[in-house]
Design a protein around this nucleic acid. Structure first.
Length: 479
RNA sequence: GCCUCCAUAGCUCAGUUGGUUAGAGCAUCUGACUGUUAAUCAGAGGGUCCUAGGUUCAAGUCCUGGUGGGGGCGCCA
């Protein structure tokens, strides 16, 4: 008999039909004559209740069923007598596909710590929290592609292995087929990369932006959505060595157009989650409230769904770096020296505490900061007339900080070339990038959205290692 | 990379000023119960108190090193 997914089954009302379900046991409750099995197949957060009349034939099977076991159940779709659900299954035949020894199976029908589950990453999909996150994550992947597709953006696959070592977005993982136990050396005693796979040093990409720009300067509007690798020794709740990034790049867009798109996209995907993932969001909301119940009232987060609706309701604040510095300089924590880093003068790099003050205390809304000092931003950003600032933008969200970083790109050949020289970036490695400014250059803009940071915000989780199935962080590569 | 906190039963945690036999809930096992909702009730088993040293009459508790983990900061998405 063909399997019916629990998500579908729970919506059916054609009671009396014989059906088949397959899934994993969450709990089993037994009394003398009847047993109840909560079965979950991951198609939805919800379980289906399998009702078993205990008799001599099924007694042995029932004793072998524990949390975590996988079953195939044939039974009659029935209107439930109990209170917790409308639909249930009266089991006619139960087959155990795989037992789960209760003495060894680590997941119990109870609350586990996220730290514990992180060490059981191979099984944590089977919990409500992690299956909910996985479903929301999928919905966001889908919503992002749909958002761009509806707006005539083309998805571009930019390379994962890159020969460019000048992207400036951070430390890179080197890719090599050289034998590290016996590295070939050249006449100067240095590594002979001519013997390596590509004949030159290769790395994993830290950004698809530069290649994305090449495509945008022909297709007008493109986006990338791919894995990104940073070999930074970052030990925080919001950094990964391997993460997924969405990078749209648009010809003929200035910084304002860029900020408009960023805000529209964030609101679109959040609305998509509210429209399509309500079961999971409600569960994640309860989970968050449960986790924060011991916190003081003023330290608790806004309720998750309320928070998401709140983001949709208001326009993001847009101010320049210069205006932000003024606000921060005059702020209470700055005057009372509560900030760890006191804002003294224009040009200072903003720390997390400053960004959080602006978003969480001062404006109480997402903030788009623009026009940063050129000294603290990347070489490719468009230089402003003032000679001091660049057309950069950071989108700052409550709790998670920087969710998007972007800019209008420098399209002027001479200015870009001068900047590359000034920063000692080898021009030989950037010739193809520079040529786009030589031939038919146009104003263009783009940004990078950290996908896992978006998922953090949407799920109310606080550690980025819990919103990607298999997190890669320094000293951690178990799964 | 820097700072900080934590490690007690399979899991979550309590364990007083260092004091005699280390506890609870859940899970497991046994029994009871005709429909339960992380079922309930009764009972049982389950411990290298992370590890190696040290202080002390006495260490789960204090000190030092190690290991593992959490959080904060920096880098950034």
């Amino acid at each position: 008999m063909r399997r019916t997914e629990i998500k579908i089954l729970l919506q059916r009302t054609d009671f009396g039909q014989l059906i088949n379900v397959k899934g994993w046991v969450r709990t089993k409750r037994a009394s003398k004559n009847v047993a109840f099995i909560a079965l979950n197949d991951g198609s939805t957060l919800k379980n289906v209740q399998v009702v078993v009349e205990i008799n001599d034939q099924n007694k042995d099977i029932l004793e072998r069923i524990h949390s975590g076991a996988s079953l195939s159940v044939d039974g009659i779709l029935t209107e439930s007598l109990g209170k917790g659900q409308k639909v249930e299954i009266n089991a006619k035949n139960i087959e155990i596909l795989g037992e789960a020894n209760p003495e060894e199976y680590p997941l119990q029908p109870k609350k586990h710590s996220l730290e514990f589950l992180r060490e059981k990453a191979h099984l944590r999909f089977r919990t409500n929290t992690f299956s909910a996150i996985a479903r929301v994550r999928h919905a966001m992947i889908f919503a992002i592609h749909q958002f761009f597709n509806e707006r005539n953006f083309y998805n571009i696959h930019t390379p994962i292995i890159t020969g460019s070592d000048a992207e400036g977005a951070g430390e890179m993982f080197q890719v090599t087929t050289l034998n590290l136990e016996n590295i070939p050396k050249n006449d100067e005693g240095k590594v002979d990369y001519k013997k390596d796979f590509f004949g030159k040093p290769a790395n994993l990409t830290v950004s698809g932006q530069l290649e994305g720009e090449l495509a945008a300067l022909a297709l007008s509007k493109i986006y990338t959505f791919g894995p990104t690798f940073r070999a930074e020794n970052s030990n925080t709740t919001r950094h990964l060595a391997e993460f997924w990034m969405i990078e749209p790049e648009m010809a003929f867009y200035d910084l304002d157009d860029n900020a408009d798109l960023a805000e529209e996209m964030l609101k679109y995907v959040i609305k998509y989650a509210l429209d399509n993932c309500m079961d999971d969001l409600e569960f994640l909301s309860k989970r968050q409230q449960e986790e924060e119940k011991n916190k003081k009232a003023d330290e608790r987060s806004m309720e998750l769904i309320e928070k998401l609706n709140f983001i949709l309701a208001e326009p993001f604040i847009r101010i320049t770096y210069t205006e932000a510095i003024k606000i921060l300089k005059n702020s209470k924590p700055n005057k009372k020296k509560r900030f760890q880093y006191i804002i003294e003068e224009w040009g200072a790099d903003l720390q997390s505490e400053h960004e959080r003050y602006l978003v969480e205390k001062h404006f109480k809304r997402p903030v788009i900061l623009t026009d940063y000092p050129s000294s603290i931003k990347a070489f490719y950003m468009k230089q402003n007339e003032d000679g001091k600032t660049v057309r950069a933008m950071d989108v700052l969200f409550p709790q998670i900080g920087e969710i998007i970083g972007g800019s209008q790109r420098e399209e002027n050949f001479e200015k870009l070339q001068a900047k590359i020289k000034a920063l000692n970036i080898p021009e030989s490695s950037m010739w193809w990038y520079l040529e786009t400014r030589k031939f038919g250059t146009v104003p263009h803009s783009g940004f990078g959205l950290g996908f896992e940071r978006l998922i953090l915000f949407l799920t109310g989780m606080t550690n980025i290692r819990d919103v990607i199935p298999f997190p890669r962080t320094p000293q951690n590569l178990e799964f």
